[in-house]
Amino acid sequence: MADFLLVHGSCHGAWCWRDLIPALEALGHSARAIDLPSHGSDPTPISDVTLDGCRDVVLSTSTPQTIVVGHSWGGYPISAAAEANPKAMRALIYLCAYVPQDGLSMVEMRRRAPRQLIVDAVEKSTDGLSYTVRPDKVHDLLYHDCASEILPFAFARLCPQAIAPQETPLPLSDNFARVPKAYIRATDDHTIPTEYEEEMSHVAPEELRATIDSSHSPFFSHPRYLAEILDDLEQKLPAV
């Protein structure tokens, strides 16, 4: 069975994989989640967060047998890790995530989307180093199809997101290209337009593209079904 490394998106932490980890373990896999710098229990000051630092956390916790799953912004650190050392992981799986294009930052990728869904939902900090999701927008943006207990659980743990790593361009080479990839698109995503996810999903071959009828947070709304999708993709990915 597979070893999954779960990498969260903006403002989240390892806590967001609470329900997916046991669902993957029930299918016989091992699953681990990490906190990126300044998230969850990681003490890094926001002013010190870089894309390279996020990349290095992924690399330090991945093995050549690991399938690295990146959610949303997490698509960038996992891609940077693959670019730096393509032998450090078995494959990448993008979960409603940004797939970088050579030399573009995540912010630039977001601006290329056909619709801008988060502009009115986030607030920049007074020092300009981070942003947070507006409290009145959290439910509709991230968790509109989740059980009622999810909102207070997540709301108590959401944190500021450093802007600098998301504005950092990511050059890509054959290193990134040769790492196997899969993509899971959410069909009811209120954060990244689902048609943009469909476009980005073409980084993976057709047999390694999947959809889930979910919000931007399928790890909360459909954890068991998401685990089944990951299990199916794992079986289709090249063996170690």
Rank of each mutant, 00 (worst) to 15 (best):
P135M: 01
S173E: 08
A156P: 10
R178M: 13
K181D: 15
E167D: 11
A177E: 12
D145E: 04
A177Y: 09
L151H: 00
T168F: 01
A147K: 10
L142S: 04
S173D: 11
A162E: 10
F155K: 07
Y143P: 06
I163T: 02
V119G: 01
I184R: 04
F155E: 02
C146V: 02
F153Q: 01
E123L: 13
V122L: 15
R185A: 15
P171N: 12
A182Y: 15
R185S: 15
L141I: 05
I163P: 07
A156R: 09
E149Y: 14
V122W: 06
K124Q: 15
K181N: 10
I163K: 07
R110P: 03
S148D: 03
A186Q: 14
A156M: 06
I118P: 00
D140Q: 08
R185H: 13
A177H: 10
E167I: 05
T132S: 07
S130L: 08
Y183E: 09
R111F: 03
T168C: 01
R112Y: 02
P169H: 14
Y143N: 00
A177P: 01
F176A: 10
Y131R: 04
A177R: 08
R178E: 08
L117R: 05
L141K: 02
D136N: 14
E123I: 13
A121H: 15
L117K: 04
D120V: 06
A177M: 07
V119E: 12
F176D: 08
L129T: 12
A121V: 09
P165L: 14
P165N: 12
D136T: 11
N175E: 15
T132P: 00
Q161L: 05
R178H: 13
E108L: 05
R111G: 01
R157D: 03
Q116E: 06
E167T: 05
L141M: 07
G128S: 13
T168L: 02
K124F: 13
D120F: 11
P180A: 11
L117I: 01
E123K: 13
F176K: 11
R111M: 06
A147D: 12
Y143E: 03
D145H: 07
A121L: 12
H139G: 06
V119I: 03
L172H: 04
D136K: 13
Q116W: 05
A182D: 14
V179F: 00
S173Q: 07
C146E: 08
M109D: 02
E123C: 15
R185E: 09
R157P: 06
P152M: 02
Y183D: 09
I150S: 02
H144I: 03
I184F: 13
L142A: 13
E123V: 15
S148A: 08
R134C: 06
P114E: 10
L158N: 01
K181L: 14
L117H: 05
N175Y: 15
F155D: 00
T132C: 04
V133W: 14
Q116Y: 04
R115F: 11
E123H: 09
I163F: 05
R157E: 08
S173V: 01
F153T: 05
G128R: 12
A186G: 15
P169Y: 12
A186V: 04
D140V: 00
G128Q: 14
L117Q: 04
Q161M: 07
P165K: 05
T126Q: 11
F153M: 04
L170C: 06
R112A: 12
R111D: 14
K124M: 09
L141C: 02
